[in-house]
Amino acid sequence: MLAILAAVLFGLALLMELAGFGLGPVITTGTLTTAGLLCVALHLAGVATDRSRFTRRRRRR
């Protein structure tokens, strides 16, 4: 989920850079890029992953 969010943030930053506009002094292309890099870092660190999907259940015989 964080990787998808990062891709959206990078896409918005690219569109803003190509169009040459900003959303005020706070939200700039640099801010969106930094937020995207933070999401990628959190994704690679394993934050907000569904670990129950990858665990193996032990079967009793």
Rank of each mutant, 00 (worst) to 15 (best):
residue 22 G to I: 08
residue 20 G to F: 09
residue 7 A to Q: 08
residue 21 F to Y: 14
residue 21 F to E: 07
residue 54 F to D: 15
residue 45 A to V: 06
residue 5 L to D: 14
residue 61 R to L: 03
residue 28 T to A: 04
residue 35 A to N: 06
residue 18 L to Q: 15
residue 51 R to C: 11
residue 53 R to G: 04
residue 16 M to H: 00
residue 32 L to T: 08
residue 24 G to R: 03
residue 21 F to I: 09
residue 13 A to C: 01
residue 49 T to H: 10
residue 30 G to W: 12
residue 19 A to T: 08
residue 40 V to E: 09
residue 47 V to M: 05
residue 22 G to Q: 13
residue 23 L to R: 06
residue 36 G to W: 02
residue 35 A to F: 03
residue 11 G to A: 15
residue 31 T to K: 12
residue 18 L to F: 14
residue 19 A to E: 13
residue 19 A to C: 12
residue 21 F to V: 01
residue 37 L to E: 03
residue 13 A to H: 12
residue 22 G to H: 00
residue 9 L to M: 13
residue 44 L to F: 10
residue 50 D to W: 03
residue 33 T to V: 09
residue 3 A to K: 15
residue 1 M to C: 01
residue 45 A to P: 09
residue 6 A to C: 05
residue 27 I to E: 01
residue 46 G to C: 07
residue 2 L to C: 05
residue 12 L to M: 02
residue 7 A to F: 06
residue 19 A to V: 10
residue 29 T to P: 06
residue 21 F to Q: 00
residue 55 T to C: 08
residue 34 T to V: 14
residue 49 T to E: 13
residue 31 T to E: 03
residue 19 A to R: 11
residue 37 L to V: 00
residue 60 R to F: 11
residue 56 R to A: 12
residue 30 G to H: 05
residue 10 F to K: 14
residue 52 S to T: 05
residue 52 S to W: 05
residue 2 L to D: 10
residue 14 L to V: 14
residue 52 S to C: 11
residue 61 R to M: 08
residue 31 T to C: 11
residue 28 T to W: 00
residue 55 T to F: 04
residue 11 G to V: 07
residue 3 A to C: 14
residue 18 L to S: 15
residue 60 R to L: 11
residue 59 R to N: 10
residue 20 G to T: 10
residue 36 G to P: 02
residue 40 V to Q: 09
residue 35 A to Y: 02
residue 43 H to T: 02
residue 9 L to S: 12
residue 34 T to C: 14
residue 61 R to F: 01
residue 61 R to V: 09
residue 20 G to S: 06
residue 18 L to T: 14
residue 60 R to Y: 09
residue 29 T to W: 01
residue 43 H to G: 10
residue 18 L to H: 13
residue 20 G to Y: 10
residue 39 C to D: 07
residue 3 A to P: 12
residue 27 I to D: 07
residue 55 T to D: 12
residue 49 T to W: 07
residue 52 S to K: 11
residue 18 L to R: 15
residue 51 R to P: 07
residue 11 G to H: 10
residue 49 T to C: 04
residue 50 D to L: 01
residue 16 M to F: 06
residue 37 L to Q: 01
residue 26 V to W: 13
residue 32 L to Q: 05
residue 27 I to Q: 00
residue 8 V to Y: 00
residue 50 D to A: 13
residue 50 D to M: 05
residue 22 G to E: 11
residue 6 A to S: 02
residue 1 M to F: 06
residue 33 T to N: 15
residue 26 V to P: 02
residue 15 L to N: 14
residue 56 R to G: 12
residue 53 R to E: 12
